[in-house]
């Protein structure tokens, strides 16, 4: 196994942990953290693949993803704070106002 494969394997483990976290956690903040983990798994994969292809592009992508993640944090935390003010809870199970 070439060295980058280990890093890619690690990133896939992080991605799966993140995805499972989104599906299993019930707290909006924990779900959000799991999503961030998924994005960072992608960053790790980008860096590893940039190494494999000996390109700078893959490393530059990481900056784009980090910027997007920062924008998401700003909006996401604001939304979670707003709903906490109204409901005094951040559990997604209690978000049951809208039903079919």
């Amino acid at each position: 196994m070439e060295p980058t494969s280990f890093v890619v394997f690690l990133s896939s483990v992080l991605f799966v942990i993140g995805a499972l976290g989104v599906l299993l956690r019930r707290n909006a903040l924990m779900i959000f953290m799991s999503i961030e983990l998924m994005l960072n798994a992608a960053n790790l994969a980008f860096v590893a693949f940039a190494q494999r292809w000996a390109q700078l592009a893959g490393q530059v992508f990481v900056f784009f993803v980090m910027t997007v993640a920062a924008a998401e944090v700003a909006v996401g935390l604001a939304l979670i704070v707003t709903i906490f003010r109204t409901k005094r809870s951040t559990s997604v199970d209690e978000l049951a106002q809208l039903r079919g």
Binding site: A19, V22, A28, A48, R52, F61, E72, L79, T86
Partner: peptide, 27 residues
């Protein structure tokens, strides 16, 4: 508020898949 949070969490989850997919295709 509930609509916004639901949209945000599912939307961000979907972007997680999208960007990891892009990383694998690049790889």
């Amino acid at each position: 508020e509930e609509a916004a949070l639901k949209y945000f969490l599912t939307g961000a989850f979907a972007s997680g898949f999208l960007v990891y997919g892009v990383a694998l295709i690049y790889g």
